[in-house]
């Protein structure tokens, strides 16, 4: 059954002078899904997030939190949690004080505020550092706290703008676990990244953006099927290396085995990198 729409962007345009950042973007983010916006730097992902949260007004088109209204309105923004790409924290406040302050701005107070602060710290595993000033945190800890600030008021929609930029693998994995936990809790997550493996690992659906335009949108599997091409079997025999594109690598491998002794082989399955290459003619990491 198709899930209800949480966030609707319709034919959204945004330009900064002569530079078109977002060009006719239409998207429906479904309730409870993790939606990935994948694209290189400058693709328009952050501009899209900023419009979705009311920081920027689209030049054309509409953005609506379904059943609530436009994010221009403060009461609509109260339904959204944002982890900004730039760390937006007060270094001279403790982790707990940062959360408490942003929680108060979201209208929390008293016992509810204390509960949410405690929960958020636990959620990002920073409880033991709650009374330390943020300036003493590592980059990964700051990223996790940034995520905790986004969820402090328990919003139904989360916009996470490149939440793993510049963090160590341990913190990255912790953030992935957090996002998957949020999905389990039924939260809707919009996740922007230029790391295709993150999108592949976390996202139910992925929209691929480049130059402000949405090039493709579907589940990871469907995108790969539609745009990733076939698997590539690389086999090494005494007579030399063989490269075969195939829809059935196992059958092809058995066939090659019958033809002669295989010394080693490798299968390159299509991924989002190949999808991006197919759609743009460029590799994602080079874009």
């Amino acid at each position: 059954m198709m899930r209800a729409t949480m966030l609707q962007l319709t034919n959204v345009h945004k330009a900064f002078g002569a530079i078109v950042a977002v060009d006719g973007l239409s998207l429906s983010i479904r309730q409870g899904e993790v939606f990935g916006l994948l694209g290189p730097n400058g693709a328009g992902k952050t501009t899209t997030v900023n419009m979705a949260v009311g920081l920027l007004r689209p030049d054309q088109g509409t953005i609506e939190l379904k059943g609530v209204g436009s994010p221009d309105q403060p009461y609509v923004r109260a339904k959204i949690g944002v982890a900004t790409q730039a760390l937006a924290l007060y270094d001279d406040l403790t982790g707990e004080e940062n959360l408490s302050f942003f929680g108060k701005l979201q209208g929390l107070s008293g016992r509810r505020l204390a509960e949410r602060v405690g929960w958020a710290l636990e959620f990002v595993t920073l409880s033991d550092r709650r009374r330390d000033r943020v300036k003493t945190y590592s980059g990964g800890m700051k990223r996790r706290l940034n995520l905790a600030v986004a969820v402090i008021h328990d919003p139904p929609l989360l916009l996470l703008d490149e939440p793993t930029v510049g963090v160590d693998p341990q913190s990255r994995n912790a953030i992935f676990e957090n996002i998957l936990a949020l999905r389990k809790q039924g939260r809707t997550v919009v996740y922007t990244t230029h790391y295709m493996e993150e999108a592949q690992r976390l996202c139910d659906r992925v929209g691929i953006m480049d130059h402000g335009r949405l090039l493709a949108l579907d589940t990871v599997e469907q995108l790969i099927t539609a745009h990733g091409g076939r698997s590539i079997l690389l086999a090494e025999r005494t007579s030399g290396e063989v490269r075969v594109e195939t829809d059935d690598p196992l059958a092809e491998l058995l066939r090659l085995q019958k033809e002669g002794q295989l010394q080693r082989f490798r299968v390159e399955r299509p991924d989002l990198e190949r999808v991006f290459l197919h759609l743009t003619g460029r590799e994602l990491r080079d874009a």
């Binding site: 009311g54 920081l55 923004r77």
Partner: peptide, 14 residues
Amino acid sequence: TKGTLVRLRIAPIG
């Protein structure tokens, strides 16, 4: 410059 103003603007306040 540090980005906290963005966070304040995102909050449901004017």
